[in-house]
C-alpha cells in the first residue's frame, strides 16, 4: 500500500515548483469503485490526492486533452511544465506521446507510482453490487475490499482489470520522482486471449463484431479517453470533407472502430481505458490486442517502452517481413 502522506508530500513539492503549473493525479470519487482524476494547480489541493487500486484512469490522457484556446492579444501562453502521476501503464502512454513528439521530455514532471493492479468496476459491481467501498488494497496475492465495515478478500483475477493480470510493467518506465518502492512483475503476457478469439471462424467473428458494433452510440468516449488519440481534429468527426457519416448504424460504426484500431497499430500501450469507459460494454481491446500481437511478432516492436525509439510506422528495417507485398 502506498503511503498517502509520502504521496501528498511529493505532490506538494512538485506543484510548489515555480516551473510547474498543474499536476494530474487522482482523488476520491463521489461513489463507487473508481477514483476521480484530479487536476490540481495549488499546493493546498495536494491533500486531496490519493493512490490505491481504485485509481484506474490514465493521467497521461489529460496531458494531451488540455485545450489551448486562442489567447487575447498581449497575453503570453503559460508554457510551464505539467506534473503527472504515472503507474507503469500510464508511463508507457507518456513515453509513446513523446516518441510521437506530442511534447518534449522537459514539458512534464513524472511522479512515478509502482502499482500492483487496479479495479475493474464491472467485475467489482458483479461481486459486491452497486456500492461504495471504504477501502481497497492489495495484500499479497489477494485484494482486500472493505464495505460497510466488513472486510472481504478476493482473488486478483476476480476484481482486477485484465491488463493487470498480464502486467509486465508494474513500475513506471520513466519518472522524475518515485512514490513508494518498486514492486515485482506480476505476470507475463502470453496473448492467450488473442489465441482464444482467433479460434472463431471468420463468420463467427463477423457475427460477434456485428452485435458489438451495432450497440455503439458513437459517444467517442473511447477515442477521447485514449492517451494516443490526441489529433487536434479526428478524421472520424471531420466535417469538411466528411469521411465517416454522423448517422449511427452498423456500417458507420464498423468503419469508426476499424479506423480507430488501425490508427492505433504500433501505438496502443494497452491501458484499456477505451474498454473501461465504454457505456455499451464493447470489448474494444479485443481489436487492439490482435494488432498489438501482430506488431510485436512481425516487427518486434513494443510501443511506449523506450523514449529514444522511433514510431513504428516511421521506422524501416530491411529485415521487416513483406510477405503481403506481391
Amino acid at each position: 500500500m502506498v503511503d498517502q502522506g509520502e504521496l501528498r508530500q511529493k505532490a506538494k513539492e512538485v506543484i510548489s515548483r515555480e516551473d510547474v503549473r498543474r499536476l494530474i493525479g487522482w482523488k476520491r470519487g463521489t461513489y463507487g469503485f473508481e477514483a476521480a482524476p484530479a487536476v490540481i494547480k495549488d499546493p493546498s489541493e495536494a491533500d486531496e490526492l490519493v493512490f490505491d487500486p481504485t485509481c484506474v484512469q490514465n493521467p497521461a490522457s489529460f496531458v494531451t486533452l488540455e485545450e489551448k484556446p486562442p489567447l487575447p492579444r498581449g497575453v503570453e501562453p503559460d508554457l510551464r511544465k505539467v506534473g503527472v502521476f504515472a503507474k507503469g501503464c500510464d508511463s508507457r502512454a507518456l513515453i509513446q506521446q513523446m516518441v510521437e513528439q506530442a511534447y518534449e521530455r522537459d514539458h512534464i514532471v513524472v511522479i512515478g507510482i509502482p502499482c500492483r493492479g487496479v479495479i475493474d468496476h464491472r467485475k467489482a459491481e458483479k461481486l459486491f453490487g452497486d456500492v461504495t467501498p471504504d477501502l481497497v488494497e492489495i495484500s499479497g496475492d489477494k485484494v482486500v475490499i472493505e464495505i460497510g465495515g466488513e472486510k472481504r478478500e478476493v482473488a486478483r483475477e476476480d476484481v482486477l482489470m485484465a491488463k493487470c493480470l498480464r502486467c509486465r510493467y508494474p513500475n513506471p518506465l520513466i519518472s522524475d520522482v518515485l512514490v513508494g518502492g518498486e514492486v515485482e512483475k506480476f505476470a507475463d503476457d502470453d496473448f492467450s486471449d488473442v489465441d482464444e478469439f482467433e479460434k472463431k471462424s471468420p463468420a463467427e467473428k463477423w457475427e460477434f463484431w456485428e452485435k458489438e458494433f451495432s450497440k455503439c452510440i458513437r459517444c467517442y468516449s473511447c477515442r477521447n479517453v485514449c492517451p494516443m488519440c490526441y489529433c487536434p481534429e479526428c478524421v472520424v468527426t471531420r466535417l469538411k470533407p466528411q469521411w465517416t457519416r454522423r448517422s449511427v448504424d452498423l456500417s458507420e460504426n464498423t468503419s469508426y472502430h476499424i479506423e480507430r484500431s488501425w490508427h492505433l497499430a504500433g501505438r496502443c500501450i494497452e491501458c484499456m481505458e477505451c474498454e473501461r469507459v465504454c457505456p455499451m460494454d464493447i470489448p474494444i481491446m479485443t481489436l487492439n490486442r490482435k494488432l498489438t500481437r501482430d506488431v510485436k511478432e512481425l516487427f518486434s516492436y513494443e510501443p511506449g517502452t523506450d523514449v529514444e525509439a522511433s514510431p513504428l510506422l516511421t521506422s524501416y528495417n530491411p529485415q521487416d517481413p513483406e510477405e503481403y507485398i506481391m
Partner: peptide, 25 residues
C-alpha cells in the same frame, strides 16, 4: 471541466437531452 473528456456519454444517455444535427446523405 479540467477532467472532462468531452465525450457524449452524459448527454447521449440523458433521457431529457434532445439536441440533434441534420445532415443530407
Amino acid at each position: 471541466s479540467d477532467r472532462c473528456l468531452g465525450c457524449g456519454i452524459c448527454t447521449y444517455l440523458c433521457p431529457t437531452c434532445h439536441c440533434f444535427d441534420i445532415q443530407d446523405e
